[in-house]
Amino acid sequence: MHRFLLTWLCLAISPLLLAGNGMQSGLSEAARREGTLLVHATIDREQVAPLLQAFQQRYPFIRVQYQELNSADIYRRALGNNAASGDVLWSSAMDLQIKLVNDGYALRYSSPQKDALPDWASWRDEVYGTTFEPVVFAYHSQRVAHMPRTHTDLRRMLRAQPGQLRVATYDVEASGAGYLFFSQDSRHNAEFWDLAAALGRNVRFQEGNSLTLLRRLQQGEADIAYNVLGPYAVSFTRHQPQVRWVLPQDYALVVTRLMLIHKAARHTAAAKLWTDFVLSRDGQHVLSQGSGLPPIREDLPRQLGHIDLKRNAANLRPIQVGSGLLVYLDTAKKSLFLKRWRDQLPAATRPTH
């Protein structure tokens, strides 16, 4: 009886495996003819180099042209809807990526790897989360002896020491990721605008990415960096012991870098192979171990420095992938939000753009 069941199961599964292998073989042949893949991404090229190398070893017939761009530039280029838009768009500005999908710029592709992702990490088979990155507080340990562990305590400390602590944070108006972090903060924190007022009175620098914020700490120009991507903080502080970071204990936003294939992609087969590889166990392992980016897959461990993220999941707030991200991109709502943030800033530090 057991032998019969085993034989039946093998006969039932074999066509599915053959179909899957056939699909991958067909993609490989088409990608071989294409020969090229253009990736537009916000991840530093040096950080993602191990993934590029692993993909190249797997598919030596595909020449990857990797262009490191900020999230706003990726979005603007995508609107051109032509070859310059890129084949694969990979960005931490989750709301802008979702807007591209919603406005019809993404190619639908049902990756065979999608079942290993959390339910919240993909949408309509058109966009996929690839990483699991908590947003943290970073600080200069010689200037801040006791760094608050919650948003409320941070607000209280800034209020108690007005003008004494120099804050660096994202340029909320110019950075898509920065606007995403702040707008999501306002959803999860009932006291957000009180915190924004305290931050605003102490802001000295507004930057476009986490590395620049961390360098402000390293150079002694800032004391606290607010809303820093955790993996960057972990990597940076290994070599800069005076710079430290904490995972907020009340809540920590979790960003996933969203990846989509542009509808106008010229190398769609290569783009599908890339998508599958990045989401595969092998690709995710390389991202985790080689690039320091915690994996999105449920079947792999997730670490941020010494912290086991699966054991500390209760206070993590993953930003849901889907149409909910469009709320704060409404023109009127975004203008009101930015004006309210601008009003918190001293005149000397208000953006001129």
Rank of each mutant, 00 (worst) to 15 (best):
K114F: 06
L107R: 12
M23A: 09
T7F: 10
S335R: 13
Q57N: 10
L89V: 07
L79E: 11
E207P: 01
G208Q: 14
K333C: 01
F132R: 03
V167C: 04
D44Y: 12
A78K: 09
F277D: 00
F236I: 03
H353V: 13
S235K: 14
Q57C: 01
L326W: 10
L217Q: 10
L100P: 04
Y328S: 11
D276W: 04
H262N: 11
S110W: 08
A84R: 13
V327Q: 06
Y128W: 08
A19W: 13
G290N: 02
L9I: 09
C10T: 11
H40R: 13
K263Q: 15
T130C: 08
N312L: 02
A31N: 08
L260Y: 09
W245D: 00
W193Q: 05
F337R: 04
S186T: 10
D95F: 01
G292I: 05
A348W: 12
P301T: 01
A190P: 02
T152P: 00
Y105T: 04
S210G: 06
G290P: 00
I62D: 13
A168Y: 04
D103L: 09
T331C: 00
G220K: 04
L51N: 04
V228L: 06
L100K: 11
S186M: 06
V203D: 03
A190W: 01
T130Y: 08
L279N: 06
G22R: 02
P301I: 00
P148L: 00
E68V: 14
L229N: 01
A190R: 13
R45T: 12
L326C: 05
L16R: 07
L37K: 01
T331N: 13
L304F: 03
V136H: 02
G220M: 05
T352D: 09
H353A: 12
H146V: 09
A78P: 02
V101I: 13
P301W: 00
M23D: 07
L211C: 02
S71Q: 12
L69M: 14
W123E: 07
L338P: 05
G208T: 10
N227P: 00
L5T: 01
E298C: 07
A252F: 00
Y59V: 02
P15H: 11
Q240C: 09
Q97N: 15
Q142A: 14
R340C: 08
D153A: 14
I74H: 09
G80M: 14
Q303D: 02
N315F: 00
S92Y: 15
L158V: 02
D223V: 01
W274H: 09
G80E: 15
R76M: 12
K99R: 15
P294E: 03
K114E: 15
Q53W: 12
F337S: 08
